[in-house]
Computed example of a mutant assay.
Amino acid sequence: MTRLSGAVRAVVAALVTLMTMSTAATTARADADPVAPADFVALRTVDPTILQEMRYFTPHNFVGERVDGYRRPICILTRPAAEALHRAQRTLLSRGYTLKVYDCYRPQRAVDHFVRWAEDLGDRTTKAEFYPNVDKTRLFADGYIAEKSGHSRGSTVDLTIVKLPAVPTRPYVPGEPLVPCYAPREERFPDNSIDMGTGFDCFDTLAHTLDPRVQGAQRANRLLLKGTLEGHGFVNLAEEWWHYTFRPEPHPDTYFDFPVSARSLARGH
């Protein structure tokens, strides 16, 4: 019994040592992560009324899995961009609408994940929804994927408008049938956004903000988003109705790589 107890104690001691080493390694990796500059903030601290549906924290995106660098489903932006969104939100609230963000600051490691996915031509899991009419070999040439993103500079945001009172959007169930992002609203994946003619991250020319084929209420909705944000200092990317950048950017030439997490904003930890 004495020998057995000694052996057990040795095993327990070894396990404790391994756990300690693992915890230390994890802590070291976390401490090694860069943190955000002082002028980056969580959007909720500036305007808690803006809805957040952070798609790259979930598997419902064109990659089909949570994207590298998204450790929490929070929107991080430079303070000037966040404050400008707050002003735009006040304009929309007065008309019975609210903003909803899909993506804000995006670390470079997430962009690198996009690039790896685009280079894997055998992975077409999400094609039926996000790029049904585009061959994956064309994603770089057609400008849908790039090695750098303005989002990594911290003042670019992907967003839409939701009519109040907001109806919750049901969660995506991995493996469920996918519907083209340009299908009629009642057929594509449900989103509580007003109808913009396509879903978010639709790799198709129909997603171009002023595509002439998009008319009626869909065009009016895009123009409502465009007019509101441009009135508060944002500039639209013509190829994506959801993509806006606040100008002037505080960091026009810097691509950051700190993770999307509360810890990244806890300076001096």
Rank of each mutant, 00 (worst) to 15 (best):
E147C: 07
Y56N: 14
K226E: 03
P252F: 06
D33V: 10
R87T: 15
E187A: 15
M19E: 07
D31T: 11
V16I: 10
P184L: 00
E65D: 08
E239T: 12
S264D: 04
H151P: 06
G150A: 09
L139K: 00
T137A: 13
T27A: 14
P212Y: 05
S5T: 11
F258I: 09
R138P: 04
V12F: 15
R138K: 13
W117F: 12
E186N: 03
L99A: 07
T209H: 07
D120T: 03
A166V: 07
W241A: 09
D123N: 13
V179C: 03
G122V: 12
G96H: 13
I50L: 11
D191F: 01
V134H: 01
P180Y: 05
T17N: 08
T2M: 14
H243R: 09
Y105A: 09
V235E: 15
Q89I: 07
T23L: 14
S22I: 15
Y244A: 12
R213K: 09
P174I: 08
A82S: 13
L18N: 00
A36Y: 07
D158T: 03
E187W: 10
D123R: 00
L77T: 04
D123Y: 00
M19V: 13
E187V: 11
A220S: 08
Q89M: 08
A166I: 04
M1K: 06
V157W: 04
E186K: 00
S94T: 10
A220W: 03
P168R: 03
R219A: 08
E119V: 02
F189D: 03
A14L: 14
K100F: 10
P168V: 00
P107M: 07
G197E: 04
R213F: 01
V235W: 02
H251F: 06
D120L: 07
R44D: 14
R222L: 04
L210S: 05
I50W: 03
V101W: 01
G143Y: 02
G150C: 02
R3S: 12
T23R: 13
R87L: 15
L164A: 05
D68A: 14
A207N: 13
D204V: 03
A146T: 14
M54N: 15
V101Y: 00
T23E: 04
P190S: 02
F40R: 01
V63G: 12
L121C: 09
L77D: 10
D211T: 02
Y97L: 12
R188I: 04
N221R: 05
Y70Q: 11
R90E: 08
I161Y: 00
H251N: 10
F40H: 06
S155Y: 00
S152C: 04
L4A: 11
P248H: 05
T160M: 07
D135P: 03
F62Q: 05
E230S: 01
L43W: 09
I194Q: 01
F203D: 03
V167Q: 06
T45W: 14
P59T: 13
V67M: 11
H86R: 14
R90A: 11
T23H: 11
T49R: 15
H113W: 02
R72F: 12
G96W: 12
S193G: 13
E187I: 08
M21E: 09
A141D: 07
V179H: 01
V173M: 09
R9S: 13
A128Y: 07
T58H: 05
R9N: 12
T20Y: 12
V41T: 10
T169M: 04
D253Y: 05
T209Q: 06
